[in-house]
């Protein structure tokens, strides 16, 4: 039984999909082949329309989605950290820069790291620029992600939800993906949003399951 919040999000999802042109619908259609990460939590910043649409898409596809507003403190304290204290679990989302910065920094303590990070920035002419961060080995999937996001036009956030939910397990956090820079790059017309996946790294964290006293 969907909660009231989920019901509203499904409504938003329906309206977003209805508004999407055919090309964008096609962009939604694909999915990753092979095993994908099982997501413990999908968080989205509902203060942005794109965040709400992302959440609605995630909910409609059965993801354990959680609206976080403009900061991730509550979901961190009540859901993510208690879960990570028991062991690693993959999270994904669409948030603002600051929320992702906090989650990336906190994730390091638990031996978790960024597998996939896509920056979605308004270009000022009504368009959105999508920049994917990731190690070289991700290039095929990055390219696929970028193509689909670009093809989706204004409906990119639903595609972004699809992408993080189809992130292949073969992708692992890469040390070359540095901590998100809090500074907003020049040449964009407004705050960026980020879709991302955080998964267990090879390097264990100082905290988490392994850190328990023997």
């Amino acid at each position: 039984m969907p909660s009231r919040r989920e019901f509203i999000q499904r409504g938003i999802a329906a309206s977003v999909l209805a508004a999407c042109p055919l090309t964008s619908r096609l962009a939604l259609a694909g999915s990753s082949s092979g095993k994908t990460y099982r997501l413990f939590k999908v968080v989205f910043d509902q203060t942005f329309a794109e965040g709400a649409a992302f959440g609605a898409e995630a909910v409609s596809r059965g993801a354990p989605a959680r609206a976080v507003g403009s900061n991730a403190g509550s979901v961190w304290m009540n859901e993510i950290e208690p879960r990570w204290k028991r062991g690693p679990a993959v999270i994904a989302g669409l948030t603002g820069r600051a929320s992702l910065f906090c989650l990336e920094l906190l994730a390091r303590d638990y031996g978790m790291g960024v597998v996939y990070r896509a920056e979605h920035s308004p270009t000022g002419d009504g368009g959105i620029r999508h920049v994917i961060t990731g190690p070289e080995s991700l290039s095929e999937w990055q390219a696929e992600s970028k193509t689909r996001l670009t093809a989706a036009g204004q409906c990119w956030s639903a595609v972004a939800a699809r992408m993080v939910m189809n992130c292949p397990e073969t992708l692992e956090p890469d040390p070359s993906i540095g901590l998100l820079d809090l500074a907003q790059p020049a040449g964009i017309a407004g705050p960026s949003l980020f879709s991302w996946v955080i998964a267990p790294a090879k390097r264990p964290g100082v905290l988490g399951e392994r850190a328990k006293r023997g």
Binding site: T47, S70, N71, G73, S74, R97, A98, S99
Partner: peptide, 13 residues
């Protein structure tokens, strides 16, 4: 109540 609001304020639309 602990929070990450200081960062959240930078996150507003």
């Amino acid at each position: 109540i602990p929070s990450l609001n200081l960062f959240g304020s930078r996150n507003s639309p």
